[in-house]
Computed example of a mutant assay.
Amino acid sequence: MNSTREPQRVIATETALALIERLTRAHGPLLFHQSGGCCDGSAPMCYPECEFLVGDNDVKLGEIGGAPFYIGRGQFDYWKHTQLIIDVVPGQGGMFSLDNGTGERFLARSRLFSDEELSALASQDPSRY
């Protein structure tokens, strides 16, 4: 990774970007929240942007396909050393997520940041997270 470029905390595969584009055409602007709940496990949940209230304890990781991506602070503190990679696999989406009923579902994969990336992230404005 280029050392002058800030590492991205969340990215999406081409397959995920294609599903995001289809869902955006059907539902308008979207928002993602990395679920930590019991019902849908740890699936990335996709909502119409205007129908999800972001809380004070939600951390914005970045954007995928033009959609903001949030995670709860407690979960962020646990996963802050990883990059989330949002992918799509065949299956049933989360109960309240817009991918439900498409025959595909969003899936979060992750990888550990390198030491160089962690150093770059540590130099970012701490109030951002």
Rank of each mutant, 00 (worst) to 15 (best):
M1D: 13
M1Q: 12
M1A: 14
M1R: 11
M1V: 15
N2W: 12
N2Y: 08
N2H: 05
T4Y: 02
R5Q: 10
E6K: 03
E6R: 08
P7I: 01
P7Q: 09
P7A: 06
Q8R: 08
I11V: 14
A12T: 06
A12F: 02
T13W: 04
T13K: 09
T13H: 05
E14D: 13
T15Y: 06
T15Q: 14
A16Q: 09
A16E: 02
A16T: 06
A18L: 07
A18H: 13
L19Y: 14
L19D: 03
L19G: 15
I20W: 00
E21V: 06
E21I: 10
L23N: 00
T24L: 14
T24R: 12
H27K: 03
H27Y: 15
H27Q: 11
G28E: 09
P29I: 11
P29S: 09
P29D: 12
P29A: 14
L30F: 00
H33A: 04
H33C: 10
Q34S: 01
Q34Y: 10
Q34L: 13
G37R: 00
C38I: 10
C38H: 11
C38K: 09
C39I: 15
C39G: 14
D40M: 12
S42E: 12
A43N: 00
P44C: 02
E49S: 07
C50T: 15
E51S: 14
E51R: 10
L53Y: 08
D56G: 00
D56W: 11
D56P: 06
N57I: 06
N57D: 03
V59S: 00
L61F: 00
G62M: 04
G62T: 05
E63V: 06
I64K: 13
I64V: 14
G65I: 04
G66P: 03
A67T: 12
P68I: 02
Y70K: 05
I71T: 04
G72V: 12
G72C: 03
G72Y: 11
R73S: 10
G74I: 07
Y78A: 13
Y78F: 01
Y78W: 05
K80L: 08
K80D: 02
H81Y: 00
D87C: 04
D87F: 04
D87W: 07
V88M: 02
P90E: 14
Q92C: 14
G93T: 15
G93H: 10
M95G: 11
M95D: 15
S97I: 07
L98W: 01
L98I: 12
D99F: 08
G101P: 01
G103I: 14
E104V: 13
R105Y: 09
A108P: 07
A108W: 13
A108N: 08
R109G: 02
R111M: 04
L112C: 09
L112G: 10
F113M: 01
S114Q: 08
D115R: 07
E116C: 08
E117R: 09
S119Y: 13
A122Q: 08
A122M: 02
P126Y: 00
P126V: 00
S127M: 00
Y129W: 00
